[in-house]
Amino acid sequence: HYVEVNGKKIQATSAEEAEKIAKKFAKIYNATVLDLGNYYKVT
């Protein structure tokens, strides 16, 4: 599981952790979290 933010991949140990990381970055960048199955993308 990982999160992609601005083209950078951030490794996460679980889907739950990946979701938390994605939501945190989405809040910082006022962005949207896309759940793409095996990873989250912040756009």
Rank of each mutant, 00 (worst) to 15 (best):
E4F: 08
K24H: 15
V33P: 02
A18N: 02
Y29T: 05
K23V: 08
Y40P: 04
V5N: 00
I21Q: 02
A26I: 05
K20C: 15
Q11M: 15
N30L: 06
A22H: 01
V3K: 02
E19K: 14
E4K: 04
N38Q: 11
E17V: 08
N38K: 09
A12P: 01
K20R: 13
K20E: 12
E4S: 05
G7K: 03
Y40E: 04
Y40G: 04
N30H: 15
I21S: 01
I21H: 01
L34A: 07
K20F: 09
T43I: 15
V5E: 00
K9S: 05
A22L: 04
T32L: 12
Y2I: 07
K27E: 13
H1V: 10
N6C: 15
Y39K: 03
E4Q: 06
K27L: 12
K23G: 07
T32Y: 10
K9I: 15
T43E: 13
Y40D: 04
Q11F: 15
K41H: 07
E4W: 08
K8A: 08
V33G: 01
V42C: 07
E17A: 11
A31W: 10
N38H: 13
E19F: 15
Q11N: 13
V42R: 00
E16G: 08
D35N: 14
I28Q: 10
I28K: 12
N6M: 14
Q11E: 10
T13M: 11
F25R: 00
F25Y: 13
N6L: 14
Y2V: 06
G37A: 06
E16P: 05
G7I: 02
L34C: 11
I10Y: 11
F25N: 03
K27M: 11
V3I: 07
V33L: 07
A12L: 06
N30W: 09
Y29W: 10
K23P: 01
K24T: 11
A12H: 02
T43R: 04
F25P: 01
Y39R: 03
Y29R: 03
L36I: 05
T13F: 10
V33E: 01
K9M: 12
A22R: 01
T43V: 15
E17N: 09
D35S: 06
I21V: 06
N6K: 07
V42A: 03
S14F: 01
N38V: 09
I10L: 07
Y39T: 06
N38S: 13
L36T: 04
E17Q: 11
V42K: 02
K20T: 10
H1R: 06
Q11C: 15
V3L: 05
V42T: 02
K20Q: 11
G37F: 08
F25M: 11
I21T: 03
Y2C: 09
F25T: 01
Y40M: 06
A22M: 04
K20P: 00
K8C: 15
D35I: 13
K41Q: 12
A15L: 14
T13S: 14
K20V: 09
E19C: 15
E17G: 04
V42N: 03
Y2F: 10
T43G: 08
I28E: 11
K41I: 15
K20S: 11
L36H: 07
E16K: 13
L36S: 04
S14M: 03
F25L: 15
A12C: 15
V5T: 01
K9N: 07
Y29N: 05
A26Q: 08
V3W: 03
I28A: 10
T43S: 11
Y29Q: 05
S14C: 07
A12T: 12
E4V: 12
Y40R: 02
N38A: 10
N6W: 15
A31M: 15
V42W: 03
A15I: 14
K24L: 14
L34T: 11
G7M: 03
H1P: 09
A22P: 00
E16H: 10
S14W: 07
L34K: 08
K24P: 00
A26L: 06
T43N: 08
N38L: 09
K20G: 07
D35R: 11
T32N: 09
K20Y: 10
G37P: 02
I21G: 00
A31K: 04
A15M: 15
V33Q: 01
Y39F: 09
Y29V: 05
K41N: 05
E4D: 07
V33R: 00
H1Y: 15
I28F: 14
V3D: 00
K9A: 06
K24M: 15
N38I: 09
E4C: 15
A15S: 10
K27T: 10
K9L: 12
K9Q: 08
Y40F: 14
A31V: 09
N6F: 15
V33H: 02
D35F: 14
E16W: 09
K27R: 10
G7S: 04
K8D: 06
K8P: 00
V5D: 00
A31I: 06
E19S: 11
V3H: 01
E19D: 06
T32V: 14
H1S: 09
K9H: 09
K24W: 15
L34P: 00
A26G: 07
I21E: 01
K41Y: 11
E19H: 14
D35H: 15
K23F: 10
Q11H: 15
N6S: 06
K8G: 05
Y39D: 07
Q11K: 13
I28Y: 14
S14V: 01
K24A: 13
E19A: 12
A18T: 00
G7V: 00
V5I: 13
E16S: 11
A15V: 11
I10R: 02
K23W: 12
N30P: 02
Y2N: 01
N6E: 05
T43K: 06
A22I: 03
G7H: 06
E17L: 08
A18S: 04
V33M: 07
A18L: 02
T43W: 10
V33I: 13
K41A: 08
V33W: 08
L34R: 07
Y29M: 12
V42D: 05
A12D: 01
T32H: 10
T32D: 11
Y29D: 04
K8N: 08
Y40T: 05
A18F: 04
A26K: 06
V5M: 05
G7F: 04
L36D: 03
